[in-house]
Design a protein around this nucleic acid. Structure first.
Lengths: 144, 144
DNA sequence: CCATTTTCTTGACTCGTTCCAGAAAGCGCG
DNA sequence: CGCGCTTTCTGGAACGAGTCAAGAAAATGG
């Protein structure tokens, strides 16, 4: 669907050097949405067994700064990454098992971006996290 | 304004034992909105110089679980606590200096609570974080 | 193919938070 | 008012995600 699976091209387009670790990280984030850093390290090492964790951390930072990847971190979770960027979507997080799913906000455009009183802040983004229970955990008797 | 500054009463009402550390922590959170754990430890030790950090961590967890205090943790920040609970307000966070301010959502009631497609999740809360720059940082030339 | 600049490897280290065992304090009851 | 049970607190070790730093390796432009 996206012509964007040409990762080297994506990197170049963002003005970044094309390195094997970066390509692999970009690929891992694309194929494992909402994965944490450790999972990404694992996925990357399937291709490049010798990458250091530092290379992955660096790549994730660089990619995030370049806007090729988005970092999310719900309260109580470690950092997670996803490849859907610039499309103003949000997340539902399961309180019980931590599962994360994408949600397109009911309001088609930027949701709630107009705070009633912004205290003088210049707001450029509204991040919404819905908390609840995923289908499986909703069925299972609450154990917490 | 709130008859709720009787902290021991608040604790008892929540079915919790009244201990000096808990009362002090509750007081610290009330007087230092959005403070992180370290600041709270400092504030608590102004009254009780000998409290262990663990007592503060335990109290914060207990108070959070009891709903007397709310924990927030914007991406990239450590845990912070506030005493406004159950009133459905949100936060603006400064990307530059990390300052946090309260915001009442434009929609008077639960904002965006109806996700367009909730993937089968049972949603009970929508948490909104607005990102931008606080008044001071908006004036200062962007240095990041 | 070379030089320059950026990125990666390795390994130590920081910092917020949690775990643990024993001592202390709160609460219900007589 | 004091006893005993249970919860909480103290002190200190431990943990884990993430960062820092120095030198080796690889990308890009010529």
């Amino acid at each position: 669907m996206t012509p964007a699976d040409d990762f080297p091209q994506l990197l170049r387009g963002a003005g970044l050097r094309v390195t094997r670790p970066r390509v692999a990280v970009l690929g891992a984030v694309h194929s494992h949405p909402h994965a944490d850093t450790e999972s990404i390290i694992g996925a990357v090492r399937a291709d490049l067994p010798e990458v250091s964790h530092q290379a992955v951390y660096d790549s994730l930072h660089t990619l995030t700064a370049a806007g090729l990847v988005r970092r999310i971190q719900p309260t109580g979770s470690v950092a997670r990454y996803e490849s859907r960027v610039e499309d103003n979507h949000h997340h539902v997080v399961c309180r019980s098992c931590g599962a994360i799913a994408d949600v397109d906000c009911a309001v088609g455009h930027a949701p709630c971006l107009t705070a009633s009183d912004d205290s003088g802040f210049v707001v450029d983004e509204a991040e919404v996290i819905y908390w609840g229970r995923c289908p499986s955990c909703a069925i299972a008797p609450a154990r917490q």
